[in-house]
């Protein structure tokens, strides 16, 4: 018998620091699998955010930089300008990207910066114990919206994939989910397409991944997958929001 599924080479042997059942771990692995399959481990520089994946520099075998909260797209821009031939990606949560890092994300896309962003949307701040995020749903109870997110007080969740897809510098933008095995495979395909878009120099790419936070949602890991389907997907529809990869990109 042959080994048909194993830990990807560019995923280090480190015990991942994520909570039990948190699908950050799945997404980390998918990134590593795609890097392996594209043979890019030696040319990849990843940028991790401040949030649950802040120590992702321990989880990959390729060069990593840890960015200040929200600034990963700027750090990645600096790296990519120095090493345009490398694969440079950021891995960010919804607090890091859609709250403090909104400007960096919008402008990296507007500049058609040739980097890829893996944006993990779990509608909450995980690392700091469950506060409201810009993607928290209306009515969602969090530590900082103990009576549920109220429109008149905290407004509406931000739809990053839709927002970024309006920028001409964005070449490929898709929202995917890791709530089920088929969707995990689609997520991997989206990450692959984003990295290929970058390596072909076609411009900015962003993959928004709907993900879970069992601990701060107060649910079991399996129930948390269900919440993605029943509550998050209606608010954040999956799909390709922009794809100029066939028409030669945007640069």
């Amino acid at each position: 018998m042959e080994k048909i599924f194993d830990r990807p080479h560019s995923l280090s042997d480190f015990v991942l620091s994520y909570c039990p059942g948190c699908t950050h771990g799945v997404i980390n692995r998918l990134v590593a699998e795609v890097v392996d399959e594209m043979g890019l481990e030696g040319k990849t520089v990843g940028v991790c955010p401040v949030g649950c994946s802040v120590t992702a520099y321990n989880f990959f075998e390729f060069d990593m930089q840890e960015a200040a909260h929200g600034r990963a797209p700027a750090v990645a821009t600096g790296i990519k300008r120095v090493h345009p031939e490398n694969l440079v990606f950021t891995y960010q949560g919804d607090g890091d990207l859609a709250a403090i890092g909104t400007a960096e994300t919008v402008h990296a896309a507007a500049r058609a910066e040739n980097i890829s962003i893996i944006f993990v949307n779990n509608t909450i701040y995980g690392m700091t114990g469950g506060q409201m995020a810009p993607t928290s749903l209306v009515g969602q109870v969090t530590q900082t919206t103990p009576y549920g997110r109220k429109v008149e007080n905290q407004g509406y969740p931000i739809h990053v994939a839709e927002m970024i897809s309006t920028l001409r510098g964005a070449c490929y933008v898709e929202r995917v989910s890791v709530d089920s095995v088929p969707n995990i495979k689609k997520t991997k395909a989206a990450i692959r397409k984003a990295f290929e878009c970058q390596m072909a120099g076609k411009g900015f790419s962003l993959v928004e991944v709907l993900s879970t936070c069992p601990t701060n949602w107060g649910m079991s890991p399996v129930e948390a997958l269900e919440r993605i389907r029943t509550e998050m997907m209606p608010e954040f529809p999956l799909g390709v929001y922009k794809d100029c990869t066939e028409t030669g990109g945007v640069r």
Partner: peptide, 19 residues
């Protein structure tokens, strides 16, 4: 049946599949 669904969804990469 070696479908590897379990390994695909495992967040900690603790499952190895042989077929």
């Amino acid at each position: 049946i070696g479908c590897a669904f379990c390994a695909t969804i495992c967040p900690d990469c603790v499952i190895t599949i042989y077929k």
